[in-house]
């Protein structure tokens, strides 16, 4: 038995519907909202600002600090313990590493840019949604960036390559070949991947093919992120000078 029809009826290479917005948190210097399917991420950026404790300061460049957090009610009904845990620490770290290649903080020595990612609702792919939201928020905050970053998960469900797995696909147990879940983050201008993780087992050929499909999906997502930013500043086009 192979996995020919996806559980939610999507096509093999189809991502879930996306809603993206910029500037949703007024107190922050920049903010972003990213909803993909039932996964919702908010990101708020504060800074560049003074970094304390002082020993963390880097005189050669500013630093980026990400914080990923799932809200207590965000799961499938069981209370998720918020705050730092092994998983949240890891995701905070990989988010930071995924965004770092595009942000340029050379202009802000000894300072910090804080990114807070909160997920009020999750249905798999939360780190990818977090990265997408954070990337919108950083651009909104006027941070110098070479490019936006978009992220999506690819993988195989019982041997079939699919894009943007939801929770039920991740937990699919019926097949013999199992599930592989590969979150990726992609930088379009350099065509580089800045995040690559995997759960499960996949053959080499399928991995290469899946990554190519993932990059295509990311190109789609980047357009949605760009539009979200332009939407916020839309009328700024005309200036009364």
């Amino acid at each position: 038995m192979t996995y020919t029809k996806r559980l939610d009826g999507r096509k093999q290479k189809e991502i879930r519907p996306i809603v993206a917005k910029a500037g949703v948190i007024k107190n922050a210097d920049g903010s972003g909202y990213f909803k993909i399917g039932n996964t919702v991420a908010y990101a708020a950026v504060y800074g560049p600002r003074e970094l304390h404790p002082k020993f963390l300061q880097d005189p050669s460049t500013g630093i980026l600090r990400c914080n990923y957090n799932m809200m207590p009610f965000s799961g499938m009904g069981n209370r998720v313990k918020p705050g730092q845990n092994r998983r949240a620490k890891e995701i905070s770290l990989v988010t930071e590493k995924a965004l770092l290649p595009v942000v340029d903080l050379k202009e802000y020595p000894n300072a910090v840019v804080d990114v807070f990612i909160e997920l009020p609702q999750t249905d798999a792919g939360s780190r990818c949604a977090g990265i997408c939201a954070a990337s919108i928020a950083l651009a909104d905050a006027g941070i110098p960036m070479k490019d936006l970053v978009s992220a999506v998960s690819v993988g195989t469900v019982d041997g079939t390559i699919v894009v943007d797995l939801d929770y039920f696909e991740e937990a699919y147990e019926e097949g013999e070949e199992g599930v592989a879940d590969i979150p990726i983050a992609y930088i379009p201008s350099t065509q580089e991947l800045s995040l690559l993780q995997m759960d499960g087992v996949i053959t080499k050929d399928k991995l290469v093919e899946a990554l190519e499909i993932g990059k295509k999906a990311c190109e789609e997502i980047i357009e949605i992120q760009k539009n979200a930013l332009k939407e916020k500043y839309k009328i700024s086009g005309e200036d009364n000078e």
Binding site: D147, P188, K226
Partner: peptide, 8 residues
Amino acid sequence: RSVVVPGE
């Protein structure tokens, strides 16, 4: 005088 986003 149009709005541009990073990487555009």
